[in-house]
């Protein structure tokens, strides 16, 4: 026997969570476009999509965020901090790759300086993940040694039953258990079997790729030029990626008053590494694409023992010139290190 949440009880749960003080968020499709957004009712969720177009990261690390306000008057400089917004959130219907993305970035945001914007939101949020029974041509979690029912980063894992009847409930953390205590009366014991998981074929052997990337001789390989010739250097892959985390600090305003903001930035842009002198150490797109791959599969794991990719496939799905992590790693896996 396992605990079951039946679909027809989901709206009761949403209402209950809301009265318990949670803002309830989940995958929502508007016109042709989907993202994680606040809902009023369970019927606002779009649980039928493979995964939302936009990733979960932006609920923790928004594209632009005010940090402080400054005013300078005569001799006096005044600053006023913007503290991260707080408030309990329950994010329902998260995809395992998006949840895993959060756990990948946790050590990064907590390494030397504890980023209070990230962690305030992490502590305030309950992640209720639904394992995947559907995938598309671009999903690659299994190639990253994850799976359609990976629990990394989740507080609750729900396993779908056949015919969208509901979900088996697996509580993973105290935070998840607490949030599900509030809806205990809507859960039932049952023996309904879970629907089969999505079958996501492995696209490359990750260990072979990592070994090639770690070999310093390959840093200057002709491979980088060939693979990235068509890359136009936009920020689409980085900005949709649930794990890309680079940002830029900008003062908006004038000499006397303004706001300091933290904005997304991308290693695909030439400006990312441009020096004041005009010299650019990463002067070609191939050097920038190499950086993105090296960072994800060599430098980041070297520091934090985890790859900076959860296999959501968004970078390939949305690339204007049909590039992405998959093609690059597939090709690397066939090279001889």
């Amino acid at each position: 026997m396992t605990r079951i949440l039946f679909s027809d009880k989901l709206d009761n749960c949403v209402t209950r969570w809301q009265s318990a003080g949670f803002s309830v968020i989940g995958p929502v499709t508007k016109d042709t476009f989907s993202s994680y957004a606040a809902v009023e009712h369970a019927s606002d969720f779009d649980l039928g999509i493979v995964l939302p177009d936009r990733s979960l990261k932006e609920l923790f690390f928004p594209q632009t965020e005010p940090m402080l306000r400054y005013t300078i008057k005569q001799q006096a400089i005044n600053t006023e901090d913007f503290t991260p917004p707080s408030g309990k959130r329950l994010i329902f219907g998260v995809r395992p790759c998006d949840a895993a993305g959060l756990s990948i970035d946790d050590p990064l945001f907590g390494w030397d300086y504890k980023d209070e914007y990230w962690f305030q939101r992490r502590n305030d949020s309950v992640i209720v993940t639904i394992a995947c029974t559907k995938s598309d041509d671009f999903c690659l979690c299994t190639s990253l040694k994850l799976a359609p029912d990976t629990t990394n980063g989740s507080d609750i894992l729900l396993r779908p039953l056949e015919n969208n009847k509901g979900w088996q409930v697996e509580e993973l953390t105290d935070r998840g258990r607490e949030a599900f205590l509030t809806i205990a009366e809507f859960l039932q014991e049952g023996s309904e079997p879970a629907a089969p998981m999505a079958v996501v074929p492995e696209m490359f052997d990750l260990d072979t790729c990592v070994a090639w990337l770690q070999n310093p001789e390959n840093f200057e390989s002709k491979f980088w030029k060939d693979i990235s010739m068509r890359c136009i250097g936009c920020g689409s892959c980085t900005y949709l990626c649930p794990t890309c985390h680079c940002f830029d600090i900008q003062d908006e305003g004038d000499t006397y008053s303004g706001i300091r903001r933290k904005n997304w930035d991308s290693c695909s842009f030439a400006l990312f590494t441009m020096h004041t002198s005009g010299h650019n150490p990463r002067s070609t797109q191939s050097a920038r694409w190499r950086q993105r791959i090296m960072h994800k599969f060599n430098y980041f794991p070297g520091k934090f023992s985890v790859n900076s990719c959860s296999g959501c496939g968004r970078c390939s799905r949305q690339c204007p010139v049909d590039m992405g992590i998959t093609e690059t790693l597939q090709k690397i896996s066939t090279l001889h290190s």
């Binding site: 136009i232 936009c234 400006l271 204007p320």
Partner: peptide
Amino acid sequence: CYACRQSCPMCYCRRCIVDSNQPQWVNTSS
């Protein structure tokens, strides 16, 4: 993300006006 600019054959400026920061003509924030 500037994919619109990067994919446009007419947006060939080596340094786009929004990338100029001395002075910063256009806010970089999204």
